[in-house]
Design a protein around this nucleic acid. Sequence first.
DNA 1: CGCTGAGTTGACAAGATTCAAGGGCCGTGG
DNA 2: CCACGGCCCTTGAATCTTGTCAACTCAGCG
Lengths: 231, 231
Amino acid sequence: MSTLKKAGGRPRHIGPIACRSCDLNEVCRLTGLIAFDAGRSWRSSGALRSLETGAPLFRAGSAANAIYAVRQGMLKTTRVSAEGDERIVGFHTPGEVLGLEAFGMGSFACDAIALEPSVCCELTLPLPGDGRVHELSTAMIRLLSKAAEPRLDLARGSARERVTNFLLDLARRLGSRGFDANQLILSMSRQEIADFLDTRIETVSRVLQQLNREKAIHVRGSRVNLLRLSA
Amino acid sequence: MSTLKKAGGRPRHIGPIACRSCDLNEVCRLTGLIAFDAGRSWRSSGALRSLETGAPLFRAGSAANAIYAVRQGMLKTTRVSAEGDERIVGFHTPGEVLGLEAFGMGSFACDAIALEPSVCCELTLPLPGDGRVHELSTAMIRLLSKAAEPRLDLARGSARERVTNFLLDLARRLGSRGFDANQLILSMSRQEIADFLDTRIETVSRVLQQLNREKAIHVRGSRVNLLRLSA
DNA sequence: CGCTGAGTTGACAAGATTCAAGGGCCGTGG
DNA sequence: CCACGGCCCTTGAATCTTGTCAACTCAGCG
């Protein structure tokens, strides 16, 4: 059934994460507490979306009724490039928010696909605006503004730098959510890492094995143990 | 005086742009029209900031009192990477908005530097939030949400693809603002293009000359004429 | 127990970087 | 007005990294 067979008896579930470590935490609390005009309110529904590996959370262009936070598992977001091929925009760990771009656009800009069995929290959006002023909590503004922050792409420098930065970035993000930053589980395939880093699967494999030989990491299948890895 | 001497008698001023073609247009109009609580209102001041080549519009980490739109000229935004070196996040044409990340963070996340004598419109921000709900127009939400949209980095693929996509992207953005999309003025140096595209100055030069020989473009110094360039 | 698909590895080719040198345009100053 | 020096930009040649192609390993699953 699963469209993604993984080698090595890959462990599947990352998370679940505690609400207190989630980027939506503040918004969730506030939306439950603050009273809004009934016609245009948005509620912190307890709605959960469970996804099998390969299942879409949402698709680019589809009408957006909600934004999401990853509760457990891991997802990727993808867009179609100008040349027509699908490219991976990012990977998303528990506690991270997806679909914020839909807030003002009314539709999603990318596909969000589960890399392993995952669960996402769904926050229902207000009805489409009619041109008047919307109420919006400072928490929501912070969220949007933070997401609007210009970011440095990881797909830069040598192949070794790309892979190293990829691992360190993932470790940092997982570590900040309360996971063990030195025990990574790569839910994505080597091919997906290569796509994301704008390189080839063989190159990713070679760099990982090289770091393994140098004892900077210990890699076995989807499990990566960071030993003394630095940029 | 100028810290950037350019070869070829480089023409300097791009723009000015008409307000109707500016991304801040809607927000500017609304802020002038809509009444807000005086204590936390934000106004569409007519304030302009004129910048010499190399002058900063704002610096990373500095307290943010405003967001900006480019009125004429061209700017770059830069961040310091994890490795400590300065990298160019993007170039900004007339009509584009800068500093949106400061809206919720209170400070800017990157440096914004003029690439040629430029003028920016300044929109004063509200006082820092006290935890209560802020009023915010749908236009402002759209702006933030649009900026939060995940983007595909141009620094991908072969050197030729990078340079080509860079030129096409610039042409598209200028064309959408009413400029001639086939008559580009590169306010940034070759070195800055190379930094942005994660390659070397020699490579940028070679690709440009190759495209020139193929008559896909006509390049002379900072002037680039797109003849039949395609991705 | 062989099939399948992901991952690894090796040999070679293609492409980019590096190093070095030359050309063009500008502003300055004789 | 022209010569000079500086800075960008261009160009060439050698080197190194990465991509390409192909073979092979390994683990799960029927």
